[in-house]
Computed example of a mutant assay.
Amino acid sequence: MLTSEGSRPDEAGVSRAGLVPDAEPVIDAAVAPAYATWGQRVVAALLDDAMLAGVTWLAFGSGYFLPTLTPVLWADADEGWPSDPRILIPLGAVAVLLVLQALTGWTPGKLVVGIRVVREESSAPAGLWTTVARWVLHLLDAVLLIGYLRPLWHRKRQTFADGIVRTVVVQQLPDLPRKQGLAVYSAALVAVVLGLGYCFPIHGGASSAPESVVVCELDGRAPYLTTGEIALDGSVWEDWERRMWTVKATRTAHPGATVTWASDPSVRDVHYRVEIDARPSSEDGEPMISRSWDVGTGGVDDDPSSDGSYTHTRNISPDGDVHVADVELQESDGDLGALGTQVWTDVRLIADGEVLAACGSGMGYDDADQVG
């Protein structure tokens, strides 16, 4: 049988061991813990990776490469590793799990499932360098996933990494007094439940209008423009993602303008054009996104906007026609997210190739009133 520092089988057939043995025990083959099944290993890995995914989302949000204790040869995210000091948060979480496994044989996921990584010859914890080597060598297991499937048929249920560093995964729980054991198991259970909770997002979004607009009064350029104004406005689309009680929101500015002008009745057949240039307010130079709209004459025979990015109406009067053109940049026009929420916008009204009026100013889209 095992010494008091070693392990002994409990009534359920799962052995118990101290969290950090004082010495390497001598194993009696008759009472050695049973090897963990492939299913137990998979569940434990999923629970540990769920915790790492939750930590990564809390640090950065969605769309980044997720750290794992079971590496694979492909990435699940589009954006890769962020170049941000906060990358130390998920990497630190990986380090904590590796150290726990190195010193005790358990991670929260493995403890909840009731399995432990130990040295093959002594059933002692594997130690830091062996644990790190085993983690790196899991890349060999990831080749066609053969190594990860190997415990299904191997006598000792070992992956290739286990075989190289001489570790086995056994069914074993900590040998602690009842209250301490319950506290340790409860802490591990809470950690994995939170990790799982942060893996299930709820998405939503809403369109908002900026709280204030910039208005430029226009000088007369008869007959195409006798009076008018350009109001820099647009909208903000806010995407939010809720996981557990945490909500992360991202705002995307859609710069736009409302151009109002009066024209002489003699030029009702003239086609007008509106142009917008947008760039972050913090940057000088060339615009990041540009677009022009042939808004037509504003008559009833004009073709409507195919993408809903503009409207142009004209109220006819004997004394002069009043035009209202609304334009707004769309996702298809460029990377609106790169503009940020402080945007410099230049707007021009053009007729017959001549710029009739222009307005340029910075616009803030940080605070907005929800409109839908």
Score class of each variant (00 low, 15 high):
residue 298 G to T: 10
residue 246 T to P: 00
residue 77 A to G: 07
residue 60 F to S: 06
residue 156 K to T: 14
residue 66 L to Y: 03
residue 77 A to M: 09
residue 66 L to D: 12
residue 287 P to H: 14
residue 174 P to Y: 12
residue 172 Q to L: 12
residue 49 D to G: 01
residue 190 V to S: 06
residue 53 A to S: 13
residue 82 P to M: 15
residue 7 S to K: 02
residue 242 R to T: 15
residue 262 A to M: 09
residue 41 R to V: 10
residue 188 A to C: 09
residue 247 V to C: 07
residue 50 A to M: 06
residue 51 M to L: 11
residue 85 P to K: 13
residue 214 V to T: 14
residue 346 D to T: 15
residue 80 G to P: 00
residue 366 D to L: 08
residue 249 A to K: 02
residue 154 H to D: 15
residue 313 T to V: 05
residue 209 A to L: 12
residue 162 D to N: 03
residue 191 A to N: 05
residue 266 S to T: 15
residue 254 H to D: 12
residue 301 D to Y: 03
residue 92 G to S: 12
residue 252 T to K: 03
residue 195 G to R: 03
residue 212 S to W: 08
residue 209 A to G: 09
residue 360 G to A: 15
residue 326 D to V: 08
residue 186 S to K: 01
residue 60 F to G: 02
residue 348 R to W: 06
residue 357 A to V: 06
residue 324 V to Y: 05
residue 117 V to W: 01
residue 89 I to L: 12
residue 215 V to D: 10
residue 59 A to W: 01
residue 105 G to K: 03
residue 154 H to A: 15
residue 80 G to W: 11
residue 64 Y to S: 05
residue 205 G to V: 13
residue 297 T to K: 03
residue 8 R to Q: 12
residue 165 V to G: 04
residue 124 A to R: 01
residue 362 G to V: 13
residue 61 G to W: 06
residue 285 G to N: 13
residue 180 Q to W: 04
residue 41 R to D: 11
residue 327 V to K: 01
residue 142 A to N: 04
residue 224 Y to A: 14
residue 175 D to S: 13
residue 103 L to C: 05
residue 59 A to R: 04
residue 195 G to C: 12
residue 182 L to C: 04
residue 55 V to R: 01
residue 125 P to A: 13
residue 302 D to A: 07
residue 317 S to T: 11
residue 351 A to M: 08
residue 341 T to C: 05
residue 29 A to H: 00
residue 182 L to M: 14
residue 330 Q to M: 14
residue 325 A to F: 01
residue 306 S to D: 14
residue 98 L to M: 11
residue 295 V to F: 06
residue 132 V to D: 07
residue 98 L to A: 09
residue 9 P to N: 13
residue 51 M to I: 13
residue 126 A to D: 07
